[in-house]
Each structure stands twice: as structure tokens, then as C-alpha cells.
């Protein structure tokens, strides 16, 4: 079986977000970058399938500039066999999905996994766009994925519950917890990752019809108003008359 796992290179979840150049660019000063947490679930599930199914290969793909290579090496250390970096700034969902589809259309993957969304732009649409471009089904957010021959059984989270689905391979899945436990690379993995193939390819030009004009931070929060524990009635009054949310 051939599995493609698409990963993002994103600020750690505890990062404070700042912008520079007149609010037109993300400011990476002091920010630590990680594999997107949802992508990490996708990768972990891919490695589990590889371990359970002899002959399975896992390729990771990232759309990013050279600074994402440590993140890609980490995915190789976790257990992927080889990697592809599409050499471009991941400008928007349509652009990224086009690069993934462009690579996948001739590579015959049985399974294309990624996170349900990237934690920077949160659009949550790349898996759907890739599926549509390749003419194969896409399912997200997937919290359980079991391969049964040429089919897969999936659980997809919906508002207030879940759906159990069945779909033929190949398909695209956007993953989330608890599909697998995150894997931490061990020393052997880290050593072998250094020599695993990482191919750099150039991006295809795309007009996404999508142009980021500027970024904005939310207005600062006012000071918290503390209310004595023995006076909950005051809280109710404030919620009604001051905050007007009751």
C-alpha cells in the first residue's frame, strides 16, 4: 500500500501571534515551528498502518520554503520512508491543494492523509479540494480509520456525534484525534531520517482568486471584573444589564 501524508509547518500551539511589515506578514521572531498537530495524527495513523501491513510505504509532502526541512526531517524520524518538499510559500488552500494533487495524480496513492485543518489559517478545506481535483472521495474530520482490503471503515465527527462510513480506496482523509496516538521519534529514527530521500520540486503556478490584504489582531481584552463568591446574583445582574448576554 502507498500512503501520502501531507504535513504543515506551523507555529507551536502556545505561540503568541504577531505580524510585521505593516500587518502584511507573519512575524516568526521567537516562534517555534512544529508539524501541525492534526497532521501529526495523520502521520501517526499512517505509520501504524505501515507497521501492520508489510510492503506499505509512507511518503510525506510539505509545501514550504527551505526553512520547513527540519519539520519534514522530524516526520521522517517518526517513520515516513521519503519526503517531497514543494518549494513555495503555502499561500492559500487552493494553491497548496493544487500542488498536492499535481504530485498525487501520477503517483497512485491508495490513501492520502492530512490534518483536518492547518492551525495557522484554519480553513479546513485542502483535503476536500484535493479529493475533488483528483476525482476521488474525501472525508473529514476522521477520528477512526481502518483498512479492510480495498475498502476502509471510517468514523467522522459531526456536530454532536459521529458518522460511521465506508469508502473504497483510494480516498483523501482529513484526520483528528483520537485516530492514533502521536508518535515521538526515537534516536534510531532521528539518525536514519538524516539519510532518507527528501526531494525538492518546484511549484506549479496557480491563480487561486484569493489575496490576503492584511492581518489584524483582536482588540485587547478589558480587565476582568471580579465578583465575590457569595454574590452570584450580582453576576446574573451584570450579565443581563451590562454584558446583555442573558
Amino acid at each position: 500500500m502507498k500512503i501520502l501524508v501531507c504535513i504543515t509547518h506551523v507555529p507551536d500551539t502556545t505561540s503568541k501571534i504577531n505580524f510585521k511589515d505593516n500587518n502584511t506578514k507573519f512575524d516568526p521572531t521567537g516562534v517555534q515551528f512544529i508539524i501541525g498537530p492534526y497532521d501529526d495524527y495523520a502521520l501517526a495513523r499512517a505509520i501504524e498502518i505501515k507497521e501492520a501491513t508489510p510492503g506499505t510505504t509512507v511518503t510525506v509532502l510539505n509545501v514550504g520554503l527551505a526553512d520547513t526541512e527540519p519539520t519534514i526531517r522530524k516526520a521522517l524520524a517518526i517513520g515516513a520512508d521519503d519526503a517531497i518538499r514543494v518549494n513555495a510559500d503555502p499561500a492559500d488552500s487552493f494553491f497548496v491543494a493544487t500542488q498536492i494533487a499535481e504530485h498525487a495524480k501520477t503517483a497512485n496513492y491508495d490513501l492520502i492523509l492530512m490534518g483536518r485543518e492547518s492551525i495557522d489559517y484554519n480553513s479546513g478545506v485542502v483535503h476536500s479540494i484535493v479529493g475533488e481535483m483528483l476525482g476521488i472521495p474525501s472525508v473529514s474530520p476522521v477520528m477512526k480509520l481502518d483498512i479492510e482490503g480495498t475498502k476502509a471503515k471510517l468514523a467522522r465527527e459531526i456536530e454532536g456525534g459521529k458518522e460511521s462510513l465506508e469508502v473504497n480506496l483510494p480516498f483523501v482523509a482529513g484526520c483528528q484525534e483520537p485516530i492514533a496516538e502521536w508518535k515521538i521519534p526515537n534516536m534510531r529514527g532521528i539518525m536514519s531520517a538524516r539519510t532518507k530521500p527528501l526531494k525538492v520540486v518546484e511549484a506549479k503556478a496557480v491563480d487561486s482568486g484569493y489575496k490576503i490584504q492584511k492581518f489584524e489582531l483582536p482588540p485587547p481584552k478589558g480587565a476582568v471584573k471580579m465578583i465575590p463568591a457569595d454574590n452570584v446574583a450580582q453576576l446574573v445582574t451584570l450579565l443581563k444589564t451590562e454584558a446583555k448576554v442573558l
Partner: peptide, 23 residues
């Protein structure tokens, strides 16, 4: 006022982006 721009939530609610939809 300048094209057709929407504001979307990014960085899991920690910021916003103004995006022009040009198609």
C-alpha cells in the same frame, strides 16, 4: 470599498486576515 474582501478568523481565533476574493 476595494474589491471584495472578507475577514476570516485565523490562528485559531488569535488573529484575523482580510482576504480579497478576486474570481
Amino acid at each position: 470599498s476595494a474589491g471584495f474582501a472578507v475577514k476570516k478568523s485565523i490562528y485559531t481565533g488569535k488573529a484575523f486576515a482580510w482576504v480579497e476574493l478576486t474570481n
